[in-house]
């Protein structure tokens, strides 16, 4: 177990290193000069060059990258070009909104996905099953921005129960989380259905039924306990994915998460922010994967930790 963890941790650091390298290269491939964005429209050539020098952007790329890494290992993500604020501070200010949306999303994913998947599994092959699966697919297939605008139109404009976007109270959270929850819920319901179907075929379920337990108890207690593990693993993956923020949903609802920060930084070629956000997102994904991998052996004993 410990060796597994050590090995995975080593791999993870290598992956994160690679992520910073690729992001760094991509940032410099962007067809825009960050220095000109800082210097403004009345700047002289001398000013532009002076700013370039101060930011170290006049040095060869490998040198810049090594210097960046040097600061990174000391926990310094640098300062935003445009805002001059510490990137760490900017990310921390967005993190609460991102985490809140993540929790809300996973809540709705489970709220929608679990009952639908379980019910479909118990009615396998029936028209209800077909309908649930069709709806799950529909949830997966609807673009987040369409669903987001649709929910806004219906539940904030036509029937104004929820605010028209923004951030602050739990009420603000419902629609964005529901938007992401519906598409995620589609995946969950399909997954829980197939794992339920497998479990319901197994011997111990037959034993339980033979003991005279109610069908409800068999499904909800015995079967679900065994079928739920892949869901837990998937929640782990989701945590990672949502660390990058939800660019689209954040933009539809004006949610001040990490995705918006990243999106604006890409528009403004604010390289320190781009680097910082990608790194945080990659850490999230790597940790999420690790979490999922740690859970997998409990799901399927044939999987060993290697």
């Amino acid at each position: 177990m410990l060796t597994f963890l050590a090995k995975r941790l080593g791999q993870s650091i290598l992956i994160l290193f690679g992520v910073t390298l690729i992001t760094f290269c991509l940032s410099f491939l962007m067809p825009a000069d960050p220095v000109r964005m800082i210097a403004g429209r009345s700047a002289t050539q001398a000013t532009v060059e002076s700013i370039r020098k101060q930011l170290g952007l006049d040095q060869p790329l490998p040198v810049q990258y090594v210097k960046y890494l040097g600061r990174l290992v000391q926990g310094d993500l640098g300062r935003s070009y445009k805002q001059k604020t510490q990137v760490r501070e900017l990310i921390m200010s967005r993190l609460p909104a991102t985490l809140l949306l993540m929790v809300g999303t996973i809540f709705f994913e489970l709220l929608i996905g679990l009952p639908a998947g379980i019910y479909a599994a118990t009615k396998r092959g029936s028209p209800t099953d077909t309908w649930i699966m069709a709806l799950s697919f529909a949830g997966v297939s609807i673009p987040q921005f369409v669903l987001g605008l649709l929910l806004l139109y219906v539940f904030a404009n036509m029937i104004p129960i929820f605010p028209l976007g923004g951030y602050g109270s739990l009420k603000h959270l419902v629609l964005p989380a529901l938007t992401l929850g519906i598409s995620g819920g589609g995946w969950y319901s399909r997954m829980i259905r197939s794992s339920m179907v497998d479990v319901l075929r197994q011997d111990f379920i037959r034993t339980a039924r033979a003991k005279g337990l109610t069908e409800r108890a068999v499904v909800l207690v015995h079967a679900l306990r065994n079928a739920i593990l892949p869901v837990v693993a998937m929640v782990g993956l989701d945590i990672g994915i949502f660390m990058a923020g939800a660019v689209v949903v954040e933009s539809v609802y004006g949610w001040p998460g990490i995705g918006q920060l990243a999106w604006q930084a890409i528009q403004m070629v604010d390289i320190p922010i781009i680097m910082g956000v990608t790194l945080v997102a990659a850490i999230g994904i790597v940790l999420g994967n690790l979490l999922a991998d740690l859970i997998m052996p409990f799901v399927d004993p044939r999987v060993y930790l290697r």
């Binding site: 403004g40 429209r41 009345s42 000013t47 101060q54």
Partner: peptide, 9 residues
């Protein structure tokens, strides 16, 4: 130049 002011000009 250290201030990096866009209004320098």
């Amino acid at each position: 130049p250290k201030t990096q002011s866009p209004g320098q000009g």
